[in-house]
Amino acid sequence: MVDDITGLPDDLDLDIEEDLARTETVLSVRMESRRYGKPMTIVEGFEDTNIDLQELASGLKQRLGAGGTVEGETIEIQGDHQRRIPELLRDEGFSVDA
């Protein structure tokens, strides 16, 4: 079968909605200090529910070798990763504010 929207075969198993959500989402990355002055990198701007934040956070944590969590519509990564996370998010297809 062929997808009505893309014209591509259905067996390619493409998630067009998530890909579109990624390209339209503009994220911001900031750092804040938590308990005992520990740095926490915060990724904000996820407004579309088609993005699997748990999966994205898991990938970021693995690539950074850090812990973290998803709180609401934000991803929190332990440590100061303000310079590295924007690059990783762009690799995943997101736009990131400078």
Rank of each mutant, 00 (worst) to 15 (best):
D15R: 08
D10A: 03
E47P: 00
R83H: 08
A57V: 02
A66P: 02
L56W: 08
V29E: 00
I77P: 01
Q54H: 09
G59M: 12
P9H: 05
S58L: 08
E87P: 00
T41Q: 02
V96A: 02
E76Q: 13
L53I: 09
E44Y: 01
V26L: 14
D91Y: 05
T69P: 00
S33Q: 14
G93L: 03
L8H: 08
T74D: 13
L64N: 01
D3S: 05
M1I: 01
H81S: 00
E18Q: 11
L53A: 06
R83K: 14
E76N: 08
D19K: 05
P39A: 05
Y36K: 14
G67H: 06
Q82L: 11
D48F: 03
H81D: 04
L88K: 01
D11H: 15
E71D: 07
R34V: 06
V2I: 15
D4P: 15
E24Y: 03
D48P: 03
I75A: 02
A57R: 13
I75T: 13
G59H: 06
G45H: 04
T6H: 03
R90A: 02
I5V: 15
R30K: 12
D48R: 11
I51K: 07
V26K: 12
R83G: 04
D13I: 08
G65V: 13
E32M: 11
K61Y: 06
S95F: 00
I77D: 00
Q54L: 12
T74F: 00
T69K: 05
G72K: 02
L89M: 04
M40R: 12
A98T: 01
L27K: 02
M40I: 11
L56Q: 12
F46C: 12
L89K: 03
I42H: 08
A98Q: 09
L56Y: 13
R63N: 11
A21F: 05
D52V: 11
N50L: 03
V29M: 05
E44Q: 12
G37V: 03
I42K: 13
Q54M: 15
D4Q: 15
D13P: 01
D10R: 10
G67Q: 01
E17Q: 04
M1Q: 04
T41K: 09
G93Y: 07
A66S: 14
E17T: 08
L60C: 10
A66K: 11
L14W: 07
I51F: 10
R34P: 00
D4H: 09
R90T: 11
M31L: 05
Q62I: 02
G37I: 10
L27A: 13
L27H: 05
D91E: 15
T23K: 14
T69F: 06
